[in-house]
Simulated scan of single mutants.
Amino acid sequence: MTTSELIERINKLIDVVDKAINKREFYPPRLTKYEAARIIGARALQLAMGAQPLVDIQEVGSTDPVLIAMEELRRGLLDFIIVREMPDGKTMRIRLKELLELERTL
C-alpha cells in the first residue's frame, strides 16, 4: 500500500467516525447484536443451501452452517450491506466491512 493510499484510507475513516459520532448520521458506530444475528442467520441459510464457505471448515472444526457463518463474520469475510432505518424515516446503507473496521478503531 502506498503512502497516498494509506492517507486516503485514514481520511475516509476519519470522515466515517465524524459522521458516526459527532453528526450522529448513523448510530451506534458498531454492529448491534440484532444485526449480527440477522447476518449470521442469512449466511447460515446460504451455506445450508449449498454456498461455498469462505473459511476452511477443517479450521472451524464443524460443518454446522451457523458456526461457519459466525467464523466468517468474526474474520470479516462477509460482504453484506446493513440497512438502518433512522427515526426521521430515512434509511442508511452501511457496508459490513466498513462498520467492522470502524468498530475495531474505537
Rank of each mutant, 00 (worst) to 15 (best):
T3H: 14
E5G: 06
E5N: 08
E5V: 08
L6W: 07
R9T: 03
R9Y: 04
I10Y: 10
K12L: 09
K12W: 06
I14Q: 15
I14D: 11
I14H: 09
D15L: 15
V16A: 05
V16K: 12
D18N: 12
D18I: 04
I21D: 00
I21A: 03
I21P: 00
I21Q: 05
N22K: 09
N22V: 12
K23C: 04
R24D: 09
E25W: 09
E25H: 02
E25T: 04
P29E: 10
L31R: 01
K33F: 00
K33G: 00
E35I: 08
A36H: 00
I39C: 03
G41P: 00
A42N: 10
R43A: 12
L45P: 02
Q46L: 15
Q46G: 11
L47A: 08
A48C: 06
A48V: 05
A48D: 01
G50P: 04
A51V: 13
L54R: 15
I57T: 13
I57M: 04
E59P: 04
G61K: 02
G61Q: 08
T63W: 01
D64S: 06
V66P: 04
V66F: 09
I68N: 01
E72M: 14
L73R: 05
L73S: 07
R75S: 13
L77S: 08
L77C: 11
V83Y: 11
R84I: 08
E85L: 03
E85T: 13
M86P: 07
P87T: 14
G89R: 13
T91I: 14
M92Q: 15
M92L: 13
R93W: 10
R93T: 09
I94Y: 02
I94M: 02
R95A: 07
L96F: 00
L96W: 10
K97E: 01
E98G: 03
E98T: 08
E98F: 02
L99D: 03
E101T: 13
E101L: 08
L102E: 01
E103L: 11
E103D: 12
E103G: 09
R104G: 01
R104Q: 13
R104E: 14
T105M: 13
L106V: 15
